[in-house]
Write a protein that binds this DNA or RNA. Structure first.
Lengths: 129, 129
DNA sequence: CTGAATGCAAACCTTTTGCATGCGC
DNA sequence: GCGCATGCAAAAGGTTTGCATTCAG
């Protein structure tokens, strides 16, 4: 489906996602790239992040402030996250129990087309100091 | 903490929240009030919703589009929601299992100050037709 | 009367888009 | 060379804020 050209900018965006540990906003990623001397427009960062997310090459989630955060997706399958509020460090969480719970609740109430948001935010060990 | 004046507008906002079934955006609530003949500014709706949310008198959550949705909180205790994407109808869900799951995951990774977002979105029976 | 709440418009923030230019293929 | 990707600036949404005015207490 996604026939993407291998541009310098796209490579750069993917590169940052490999380097950065956790979830980060598009603006942070843009800033990081600019600081690294990479010349790239903010809209290009957005466009690439959106297309990467569509292609399931990165995870996207929304934080409490309504920003969209992105992170390179290590495993292809569905999972959730434990995210540090301070540094963005992320632990990937597999929650079959939670999945089933959501599914059964939804169908018990006759809901179809169900999606869910399960994200856990906290302060990681390092950032507690 | 919150010493709020009992203005006509604040009463109106609370009134709508009592009437409306599920989660609705500030804009929807504003529109609803205007349609009901109530004269009220959009900013006032926002200000009241924010203060009500701060006072824990209403629930607030963000949908996938990044809008903030509000709903009168029926029970004081912690719970989650099953929300219809189309009509906003909401089912309150009690998920002790999910709570514990989140808690144990977080502490297993040394995270403190944990909060979580568990929301289920779907299409309710009525809106499927 | 006094200061908090309101209303309006303008500001803000993140994200998206239109359009001319540039570059991967 | 063709057409998608880029860059910029401007637009679009949702939400917040500055400031003069209104009104609850």
């Amino acid at each position: 489906m996604a026939e993407q050209r291998n541009t310098r900018q796209r490579r750069a965006v993917k590169g940052v996602l490999d380097q950065l540990e956790g979830f980060h906003s598009a603006q942070e990623i843009h800033e990081f790239l600019r600081d690294s001397g990479e010349q790239i427009g903010l809209s290009t960062v957005y466009r690439n992040l959106v297309s990467l997310a569509d292609a399931n090459e990165v995870d996207a989630l929304r934080n409490d402030e309504g920003e969209t955060l992105y992170r390179r997706c290590s495993s292809g399958h569905h999972h959730h996250h434990l995210v540090c509020r301070t540094c963005g460090k992320t632990v990937e969480v597999d929650g079959p129990a939670a999945e089933q719970w959501a599914e059964s609740i939804a169908s018990a109430h006759g809901f179809k087309n169900v999606s869910h948001t399960f994200e856990i935010f906290g302060t990681c060990e390092q950032c507690q100091r």
